[in-house]
């Protein structure tokens, strides 16, 4: 098939559409009004609510750290400090996403718009990485020097094993949760839910965009 044949074929499709395609003017007007309103109402509150909850948690843990600075165990203070720091980073990423959304002009060049939107979605994966990085502190915040001294060697060993295991897992996940591993079983297990599909697809699209930018 020659180039002209392809174009000719498309033109005949175009001509058929011209003859048979109708615009429902009334619906176009109505639907545009309805959806503009609903978009404004439904889109942002989800993220704003997530940030609000995150900020409340951070404020609560920060307050605990300040209040208990001189009385709490160093294990608690360090664990809570790490946890709150990682949560702040996760919130920062979430806000970064919101800023990106604001910056996206949907009437911009396709590649630029898709790159922004895909980055936006892909950065959600960073939130997951940071959440996993918090794993070890949940095995240490309740420890105290007095408690450790009173506990038997076996208990201390078990505690150490659990913390090392959680730390290793957290670090491993932090470095391995990335697009290249999307087909691995463990990745599919963690991100197997439908809610993660758009993020995986965004990462694939980001790969396409990068490929497109390279001159052949």
């Amino acid at each position: 098939m020659e180039d002209k044949e392809l174009i000719h074929l498309w033109k005949s499709y175009d001509q058929k559409l011209e003859e048979t395609l109708l615009l429902n003017r009334e619906l176009a007007t109505d639907i545009t009004r309805i959806k503009v309103q609903r978009f404004m109402v439904s889109m942002k509150p989800v993220k704003i609510f997530a940030i609000f909850i995150g900020l409340c948690w951070v404020a609560f843990v920060d307050m605990l750290i300040v209040r208990l600075l001189h009385s709490a165990s160093p294990f608690f203070l360090v664990s809570a400090g790490i946890q709150v720091l990682l949560t702040k980073l996760a919130i920062g990423i979430y806000i970064y996403q919101l800023i990106l959304v604001q910056q996206v002009d949907i009437d911009g060049p396709v590649l630029a718009v898709q790159e922004k939107l895909s980055r936006l979605k892909s950065s959600t994966l960073w939130v997951a990485r940071l959440l996993f990085l918090q794993l070890p502190v949940w095995t240490t915040f309740y420890l105290s020097e007095a408690g450790l001294l009173q506990a038997g060697t076996l208990l201390v060993l078990i505690q150490l094993l659990v913390t090392v295991a959680f730390t290793s897992l957290a670090v491993w996940l932090f470095f391995n949760i990335r697009y290249e591993n999307r087909d691995k079983k463990w990745f599919r297990l963690i991100f197997g839910g439908r809610e993660w599909d758009p993020i995986i697809r965004s990462m694939e699209l980001l790969g396409q965009v990068r490929g497109y930018k390279v001159e052949e």
Binding site: T20, L21, I31, I34, F39, L117, R201
Partner: peptide, 30 residues
């Protein structure tokens, strides 16, 4: 841009789904 992003907006699209069942663009069957 909307078409390429369509899959990413699936959840949101369901939330804002239009109550009208007719189509804005209709093909007359010839």
């Amino acid at each position: 841009n909307v078409a390429i992003s369509f899959h990413r907006k699936r959840t949101r699209r369901k939330q804002v789904s239009n109550p009208l069942s007719e189509e804005i663009l209709q093909l007359v069957d010839t």
